[in-house]
Design a protein around this nucleic acid. Structure first.
Lengths: 320, 320
DNA sequence: CTGTTAGCGCCTTCAT
DNA sequence: ATGAAGGCGCTAACAG
């Protein structure tokens, strides 16, 4: 593997000039810089990450911590991970995937945290490196999220436009910001538009949603659209409707949330509010790396930065 | 952060003695070693990975490459990843998750490869670091796999024991070793046990399996058990049976493969051949790190090492 | 704008 | 069994 020195010799300059050509190109005479870059390409020079890490006191490792059981996890995280990994790779960063039962070993330059619940905040506060969350939080940490409030409004509006006349919001029974935002979006929508609707919270499992449909079937007039807070719930609702002998999307509509189960499980492809997970993963990395580069951003709360990326409706067969 | 030097001073020895106490403890007088270890604990000393990497010419990064579209990916990989990540963490290694469209950047000490198809082997051959595969391969690379052949025999045997009298193996229409092994297991089983059975290959989607059941319903006498090569297919088959107005497990049995969708999607929990994915991930890492530590193992084929970890039947509601 | 010096934290080599 | 010297590849700080 070629080193800085190799490049320097071949280009008839000192190591420093080469180093500068890479890290502070504006400090090097353009023609010289070009010839250096040329030699670098010739030798297929790749800076040695370890040496850089040593002198810059950076590990070039980012930890992603998923505070949730993998067993029950959505394909969701796989998509997020893809975005995170791709962006990290581009910046020559490696990943350390920490799960619940992984040992607390090794150092890192920063953290991306997801699936956090209230009880985990004590742990978060004690971290010494920059932190970025997935999902809104009131503790002042930087985060990346999607437009939960607006997304449910959009789903609801689409259902109404499609001719459904009654809405049921099927939420997830957790007390977390994302769910609150979605419920608020739904409530505000039916109030503002004088639409008939109701709201329910269920555990996030298919069969729970299916059971719910059976047990409350009397509550659902024809032409009801179910706005669900996950694709799992959406699929369960759809199954429940079909078990009642009714048709989707003719008699009832179903809209999911997430957009990760498409084409995979459901017999009928679900119309769903699709989260741009890959983009969200990338955004989180960029935000984190910016915080790492700017040492004025400790893990302790500062001016909270947020990146909101819009989810968009992916229209399929469960709505008309 | 405490350095080797800090420990050395406090322990009244030279840096080298401390270094040796860590890496070659047998070369240090026991009492001295103990006192050094004591000081290390006192100072909460953690070796600097970058400095080690620099001098040892190791990156302490392992690349995991998934040659498959994330979009269509199984939760499968998430479990694998958890195992890999946990084991890497314990060895102070970081991960670089390479996906199809991630740039080929950065160095690493070794590769874990999964989802490889024939056309990718050219790329694999040109790698300069040790490689471990997920799944059997005939190219001579080390691998970790589950007992595909035996697993299908076990599933089949269980179905017969449970009183089903006809077996259908529902395979995945790919020409890969894992599928060949499973089919071979099935064929050998019905031959050896004189069981009535048939074999089919489908694309790995729920609805394909459901359609298959409808179209070939006449082929399936009551008391047939479907031995499926994935949980997705199993769920699709089950749906198909129910749509025919029959009962599972009373009239028909279904056994899946993988064990990653349990409790999530299916209304009825699937009996499935559960792969020990976490353990397989860990095993792959251990195998790879052994190859990295032993420099006599280049990426090019050598004596092929394999680790086979048994899948075990997880009995649920889709068999009696 | 470019080069020289020094050192990041650790380990290999050689000497004691 | 232990220590001293030197260097891995890179960059910050200072000099010119």
């Amino acid at each position: 593997m070629a080193t800085l020195n190799d490049v320097a010799k071949r280009a008839n300059v000192s190591k420093m000039t080469v180093s500068r050509a890479i890290n502070h190109p504006e400090q090097v005479r353009p023609e010289l810089r070009d010839s250096i870059l040329h030699v670098m390409a010739e030798l297929n020079y790749q800076p040695n990450a370890a040496a850089r890490a040593l002198v810059s006191r950076r590990t070039r490792v980012v930890k992603l911590t998923i505070f949730e059981d993998m067993d029950t996890t959505e394909p969701y995280y796989m998509m997020l991970l893809a975005g995170i990994a791709n962006e990290l790779n581009q910046h020559q960063y490696a990943l350390q995937l920490a799960t619940r039962n992984s040992y607390e070993v090794g150092e890192c330059d920063g953290y991306i945290l997801t699936g956090i619940r209230q009880k985990n905040y004590a742990w978060v506060e004690q971290l010494k490196q920059p932190v970025v969350f997935f999902g809104r939080n009131q503790q002042g940490y930087d985060y990346v999220d999607t437009n939960n409030y607006q997304a449910i409004q959009d789903s609801s509006a689409y259902a109404i436009q499609s001719g459904y006349t009654n809405l049921v919001f099927v939420g997830i029974a957790v007390d977390e910001p994302f769910e609150q935002d979605r419920e608020r979006g739904f409530r505000d929508f039916i109030t503002a538009n004088q639409v008939s609707g109701q709201l329910v919270q269920l555990a996030n499992h298919c069969h729970v949603a299916t059971d719910y449909v059976r047990q409350h079937w009397a509550d659902f007039p024809s032409n009801t659209a179910f706005i669900c807070a996950s694709d799992r719930l959406g699929i369960g609702i759809e199954d429940g409707i079909i078990l009642q002998g009714k048709r989707v999307p003719e008699d009832y509509g179903v809209i999911g949330f997430d957009g990760v189960l498409l084409n995979q499980i459901a017999s009928k492809r679900l119309t769903t509010m699709k989260q741009p997970l890959e983009a969200m993963g990338r955004a989180a990395v960029r935000l984190l790396l910016a915080n790492i580069a700017n040492p004025g951003s400790p893990a302790t709360p500062h001016d909270q930065e947020k990146i909101i990326i819009n989810s968009r409706l992916s229209i399929a067969e469960s709505t008309r």
